[in-house]
Design a protein around this nucleic acid. Structure first.
Lengths: 228, 228
DNA sequence: AATAAAAATCAGACATGGCTAATTTTTTAT
DNA sequence: ATAAAAAATTAGCCATGTCTGATTTTTATT
């Protein structure tokens, strides 16, 4: 029943990938995500299938069984709870916490996540704006939508990121964008789908399509000012 | 430069074993401590020697190089700091923390130990009474001595344990002995070196030599009552 | 339908870190 | 000094999880 580090990383990858695309995950996609070869992915999927954590169909790809999804959610729960501890208690910054949590998420103990959860005051979201699965594995809907789906000229507020890599987070830091920052899409460039956005009601910068797809926002309805 | 889980466990074992006996550590001793075979130990010592973390001399046994000791102390520091967090913040009990800390101690990040240390208020000892190496690797002397070295009839106070196994700690829990408990050796049985001890000024129980060698105490000088 | 490109799979290899079963020291006791 | 016991070492094997280099299967394109 015990899961190895590798097994856990595969479960997590399948979980995230099938969550994004809502579909079964192909070998190639998994291989790219885990930075392994297709051959390695296939042999691990066999192992996970034997353990009944994964269903695999050559045509349709891989998906998690109920047991596999439960395991994956536990890992994600630990990851995000540890991120909260690292950020709030140990004062690590946005860019640092992900890699440490990648290690901490694999620490096994039946009560660890729940104790952490309680100590942290049952946080709903991690420092990147991702929902923390509760003790039963329920995951609240992400409140925001992608910046790439926003219209021009609307007041927006950053509620999370889709990419937690330190590469991306360092870029955000440089741009002085964090959770709560105000954004507005000024213009979309048809040529390459890049955009010009205004940051914190200050400077305008040009960002790529990839950037737009990596930020979660909510539109801040202009204060209900005097609706008459 | 990165160390594997196994390497770290060997370094830690050598550190603890050579600290206890003050001597180089034999293959057999290491094998017993790690629950591996001698053959496995030899091959790992070769690897660690190549990495210049261990000195090994067939006649005298294994010892840590300066670099090896530094690495070992970092691991011990992390282990003990995590134990404090687990006990004090997450409310885990004496018996539970050791095994979780065995996993946490291998989480790598250059600043993690120091952030933990600060968050926990720079604790001097872990919940088992073991000194926590400071940021420079200095380890304060254990304040107590072994219960097995105590004379009969002296008021004693438990300051720590030498054995952090859950087996031993559960036994202590059953006996209602913890750090701060009052003890007195009532009688030593010459036959097998076992002893009768009084616990918390209450009941007398019989304990083995092994037990006596697993508890650290200080003698609580009878209150300086009216020295006249 | 035929073919090229993409994806999946297979076969075989490798590094790690364990193991067992000899075999060779080394130590200890007679 | 020698035999027995203990410790160290060697040789070879195994499982895990990865890889490379074919090869086969699927999917897309014309």
């Amino acid at each position: 029943m015990t899961r190895t580090l590798s097994e856990e990383n595969y479960l997590k990858a399948i979980f995230h990938l099938s969550r994004n695309s809502k579909e079964k995950v192909s070998i190639t996609t998994l291989a790219a995500s885990l930075k392994n070869t297709s051959a390695s992915v296939i042999s691990m999927l066999r192992k996970l299938t034997a353990k009944e954590l994964v269903d695999y169909d050559k045509k349709k790809g891989a998906s998690l069984t109920t047991a596999g999804e439960k395991a994956a959610i536990e890992i994600v729960r630990k990851h995000r709870l540890w991120e909260v501890l690292l950020a709030e208690k140990l004062e690590f910054s946005w860019e640092e916490i992900h890699d440490i949590a990648e290690q901490l998420e694999h620490v096994h103990h039946p009560e660890l996540a729940d104790r952490l959860d309680k100590f942290l005051g049952f946080p709903q979201f991690d420092p990147h704006g991702h929902p923390i699965p509760d003790i039963k594995g329920n995951i609240s809907k992400v409140s925001g939508k992608l910046l790439s789906d926003s219209d021009v000229g609307i007041n927006l507020e950053v509620v999370g990121v889709k990419d937690s890599s330190s590469m991306f987070l360092n870029y955000l830091k440089q741009l002085e964008i964090k959770i709560g920052s105000k954004l507005m899409v000024e213009q979309i460039i048809d040529f390459d789908q890049s955009a010009i956005i205004k940051i914190n009601n200050g400077s305008n910068i040009s960002v790529s399509r990839k950037f737009l797809e990596s930020i979660l926002i909510t539109s801040t309805l202009p204060e209900v000012n005097d609706p008459k």
